[in-house]
Design a protein around this nucleic acid. Structure first.
Lengths: 239, 239
DNA sequence: CTATCATAGTGTAGAAGTAACACTATCATG
DNA sequence: CATGATAGTGTTACTTCTACACTATGATAG
């Protein structure tokens, strides 16, 4: 961008392609899942891949991610966050492709809307049972996405993006356990989440086998103020 | 990247340009500085900008950042980290340009090697006294770089990259204070850094006006193990 | 050659936060 | 109305953090 006008000649400059890939997470039956698509053509024919595609010249990167997401899942208005940009030279055998990866978190109740789920080449995979080897460098992208999710959970309110409008505290705890891959103490969890002031109590409850659950709502307006909600000990985070 | 071979046609596809911009930090007189270049040509003629340039087709993104860095400062073997990718549609008036931004940390003693410092259009600015308005969206990039630096300081060993081979503990404390923009307690800092096991004591000292300082060396081999070195309280981090 | 100054580095007590686990509460069902 | 099941609270020992007072070591001045 700092090239002088003299040396800058768009017609001569060889350009890479730019794609946006979106790692889409959701909870299904309280378990963390990722959406993958199966490739029909060369290269990596038959392999599972992270959904994505080339950007249009008139849309920003997020817009592009949002479009991909809508095309693949029919879901709108979700949490999107840029993950990383992957640009190794040989990562796509066809040509030089630079991929800007995004993470999307879809709340559990939004899943009804998703469209292409039934088709044989789009599927939700539990993160605990992913395909052996993904197309391109998508193993790496996915691994990085999961690790980012894990570490951001500690100091952001991002877990709420995965929940429906109303939820119980133990459901929230379950998400944390899913993503962190470890059990948390019930009592301590209650205390922390209540002290955080991030939840708004409702008068609603949900009946089940035992004592009915109080339902809570996430206070989006507080999400910005309170950045550091959970701070587990070092040893807990370092796996 | 998930386009089928049928729909993918590199010759028809309109492509954005991709640049790599590098926000280069260093310490000069114990103060955090950033390297900026002054633009000679349209657009943003005369404005200061973050150094960067178009990527070559045969180099990866980091390689590209490394090349830019070497060209601007003559410095090699430094810490580089990808920051974010900026891709708004109108950010460069010439054409669609996507910029992958990197952060580089240069250790204080490496500065001797830097080359283009004297030239009028390349200069180190203290982060406390930056130019009013930078070219393109570089204000935004720079602000983000500083905030990233600040937050990563808490849980990584990245501050050491700014120091020379040998340094005193109080110099290290000074870096933290520079980047965090806040004073830290001397005693507590000593304790934390020593307990971390990240430093190796040397027999060397440096004499000054008062009691001579013991000099320490950073144990690079430990940098990986210990991820979470400093954990300041919430309220300290949230400014 | 000793007092003083300047900076280096250590000790410690009270406050705050954390982990573990026992305990109580409230509903459905038989 | 007892039992089972899940929801939610209390308590205590322990760890970590903060603030601040304290000691250490060399240079320099008189």
């Amino acid at each position: 961008m700092e090239e002088s006008a003299a040396t800058y000649d768009p017609t001569r400059y060889q350009r890479p392609s730019v794609t946006v890939d979106v790692v889409i997470f959701t909870l299904i039956n309280q378990e963390l899942h990722v959406l993958l698509v199966q490739r029909r053509h060369w290269p990596f024919e038959g392999y599972w891949a992270i959904p994505g595609g080339f950007i249009n010249m008139d849309e920003s990167l997020v817009e592009s991610a949002r479009r991909e997401l809508a095309e693949e899942t029919g879901v709108r208005d979700v949490y999107l966050e840029q993950l990383y940009t992957f640009g190794e030279v040989g990562r796509d055998p066809r040509s030089r492709v630079i991929s800007v990866a995004y993470i999307a978190l879809i709340s559990a109740d939004a899943q009804k809307i998703r469209a292409s789920d039934e088709s044989t080449d789009v599927r939700w995979f539990p993160v605990s049972a992913l395909p052996e080897q993904l197309a391109f460098d998508h193993d790496q992208i996915l691994a990085y996405a999961i690790s980012r999710l894990r570490s951001k959970l500690e100091y952001t309110t991002l877990a709420f993006q995965l929940l429906p409008e109303l939820f119980s505290i133990l459901e929230l705890k379950h998400i944390y356990e899913q993503i962190l891959g470890e059990e948390l103490d019930k009592g301590n969890f209650y205390r922390k989440i209540k002290e955080s002031g991030l939840l708004e109590e409702t008068q609603l409850t949900r009946e089940g086998r035992g004592r009915p659950t109080r339902l809570w709502r996430f206070r989006r307006e507080r999400a910005g103020e309170k950045q550091f909600v959970f701070r587990w000990r070092e040893d807990r985070l370092s796996r």
